[in-house]
Design a protein around this nucleic acid. Structure first.
Lengths: 230, 230
DNA sequence: AGTAACTGCGAACGCTGATCGCAGTTATTG
DNA sequence: CAATAACTGCGATCAGCGTTCGCAGTTACT
């Protein structure tokens, strides 16, 4: 029978031994600072240890694996989410949550990488879930439908925010792979075998809609599609 | 000025020099076989080289980086998608595409990892996009809305399929982190500070709905929410 | 006073993606 | 037909990664 222990169920301080020189929050802070500046890949055990002035092996007194360190970072980032008072309108409340999620993700783009495979459960990510459930508490649909809707909502918010970040990078940065994809796409669009894609490619109308309006429109559409009181 | 070259715009065979002993398809096949059996992490350059009977450095004659090898694998997997004839009903056609995507992803779960950050563009992934655009070609909505809907659709399908795979693993496998998350979740649900989560946790009704029905219901909801002719 | 459980951490291990340079092969060129 | 240029496979090697081990020092319980 393995440990099956979440880091959040493990006591942070031991009862015996010398006082730890650091703590989970310090590791998380150092990791977040690194990731904000240079991306999630820059968050190596050695780099975090250096930022803390510690030896590389010391981190393993606080965290059993790098993955767990990233969990700490994700949860810490979710602490920045502000929960507005409920209005009673479930759609407006969920939308507000989605906007908060987007805002924090734009501030910490590495969250998209860190939560790509799964969102770790910690105090703050669970708080987010609790608030989302609270927003739809009075809604007369099965609990399962609510959970599904929240899961889909998270996926959609991530996808939209990822697109937003990618386009923002295209404006100024030098994101290598985008040029390659763009080059191939233009090539394919003009090879005569992809008419629909060519048509879509040609109709590049000026997007007068703001990013916020687009975000609101899509999230609203998805949520109403899933949770309309049938 | 960097190369900005997609692998699909590079000629596979050079005009000069000896005949290559392998080709892109061989690399992709070996990679897919490894990933199917042991996950994407098992697809190391050395492992693929061994499977091919080649030296580790030889792969770089066909692929500039490991990422590009994964691109080949993703595109090759998308070759397994079967495109049914269009019915004229855009919702039915998009739904059929979504089901195909789900089917192939269930057959190659590592696709979720390989396409988590972005879906690479290759002949077969582009073909999928072309078919998706074709399904909504006659629909009277702006092109931009169609592209958005397709992007959201992909995100939702990935999220749903990921959940499905996770639950299937829970049935038999031994996925370490799930126990930790479950343990923490039950702890949080009974700490008195998460009433909505506790309520949701308590109402674990027996899911009589089949996975297919659930998939259809959610995808339909999302699509109608996004593309309803307003 | 003794012991058990911790602390930080230097050194090391195995593995990874990637590079370099060499010898051999082929198609083009003069 | 020789010369050359452009490729081929690949052994050897590099820097970097996550992680482990064992040691000396520190604290709290018995």
């Amino acid at each position: 029978m393995p440990a099956a222990d979440s880091i959040w169920l493990r006591p942070e301080r031991a009862s015996r031994g010398p006082a730890p020189g650091y703590d989970r929050d310090a590791l998380a802070s150092a990791g977040v600072a690194l990731a904000d500046a240079q991306g999630l890949a820059a968050v190596t055990m050695r780099a975090v240890a250096d930022a803390l002035g510690a030896g590389p092996a010391s981190l393993y007194r606080y965290v059993t694996t790098r993955e767990e360190l990233v969990e700490l970072m994700v949860d810490r980032a979710h602490a920045e989410i502000r929960y507005p008072a409920r209005t009673g309108d479930w759609l407006a409340d969920l939308l507000a949550l989605a906007r908060e999620s987007r805002r924090v993700t734009l501030a910490h783009p590495w969250l998209l990488d860190a939560t790509a495979t799964r969102t770790p459960l910690g105090p703050n990510t669970v708080a987010y879930l609790e608030h989302a459930l609270g927003a739809v508490a009075d809604l007369d649909v099965p609990t399962r439908d609510k959970l599904e809707a929240i899961a889909v909502l998270s996926a959609v918010v991530s996808a939209l925010t990822r697109t937003e970040i990618t386009q923002a990078q295209a404006g100024q940065g030098i994101p290598e792979w985008q040029q390659a994809q763009a080059a191939y796409l233009t090539h394919v669009a003009s090879d005569g075998e992809h008419p629909h894609l060519a048509a879509a490619f040609a109709s590049t109308g000026t997007d007068s809609e703001s990013v916020d309006a687009l975000f609101t429109r899509i999230v609203t559409g998805v949520l109403t599609g899933l949770l309309r009181a049938s």
